[in-house]
Design a protein around this nucleic acid. Structure first.
Lengths: 161, 161
DNA sequence: TTTACTGCAAAGGGTTTGCAACATG
DNA sequence: CATGTTGCAAACCCTTTGCAGTAAA
């Protein structure tokens, strides 16, 4: 199953259904729609972005479904300091381990990946750190904070000294 | 011992005053108290923790002062997904570049450091990544998510079946 | 049929803000 | 004295929840 093209969204839905079933939840039409939205996104989506992508979804239902999908391990919630939380497909489902470029100006979040060698050495270091602290690591999170290309341009034009 | 504390603390306050002055803000008694609280903390503090450390501060004033201190670059705001935001001294003032161990159970945040060699190689990698994306990096954030020692113990006792 | 899900509206809760009194430079 | 700061309380806004109707198994 690994190494396959991400075009196979059927496998994604099958796995999502399996995970929801494992927590006694149903894979309804609305939830399938949500998974479709996240599959097509190339960055974590805020709630307004999710609703913009499919306005057939009521706000409260989206929140409730995202909570259900998160509990099932289908999506992951990301908190960046923006007004809104953001959501993306769980990495086991997207098959795409990555990190985030967070723009402090427009608050958008873009994905990036680290070279395998760096990831591997980081993982080893994290193991040492967690051992030393008696901390059990489930996940790591590497974010870069700064200004995206668009906001740098805007600053040069609008905020010029 | 206490002589050293006074000297360190004094340098800290001088720098904090300078930074506040740079944004037309005053270094009031309350703000000095806040800086003292953060200087003594060994981990990022939530608002309840700040108020617990010094209850002479009104909640809204603490929020307002933290916003002022953040704008001046004296403290840094951290968002972990906990109900509360957390704050710590800016690294230029604490002189202590570090990262966070975030416990998903009790939501506490502990500090840890990476070996210099790892930091250096990370910085180089981040430079490559940001160049490739046209992203201007101001800061990076490396967090480990998992279970702290206490919560692992609690799980062994309470959740053992 | 049974149980979970949906949508609307209202409540929740951390954070922000209006305003009058106060302190700082 | 002029201006920034403080504290109280109310407003704010993202998110959660109660409830009645609907869809899934």
């Amino acid at each position: 199953m690994s190494g396959e093209d991400h075009r196979d969204s059927n496998a994604l839905h099958v796995e999502a259904a399996r995970r929801l079933d494992a927590v006694q939840s149903r894979y309804t039409t609305k939830r399938r729609l949500l998974v479709d939205v996240f599959e097509q996104a190339d960055h974590p989506l805020s709630l307004p972005e999710v609703i913009a992508a499919d306005s057939s979804l009521a706000q409260s239902s989206v929140y409730r479904n995202l909570a259900a999908l998160e509990e099932a391990g289908v999506v992951r919630r990301i908190v960046t300091g923006d007004d809104f939380a953001r959501f993306e497909l769980a990495e086991e489902l997207s098959g795409h381990h990555h990190h985030h470029l967070i723009c402090r100006t427009c608050r958008t979040v873009a994905d990036f990946t680290l070279p395998t060698a760096v990831e591997r050495s980081l993982a080893a270091t994290f193991r040492d750190v967690s051992d030393a602290h008696g901390f059990s690591v489930q996940d790591h999170q590497v974010d870069l904070l700064g200004a995206c290309a668009d906001c740098q341009d805007a600053a040069r034009i609008g905020g010029d000294t």
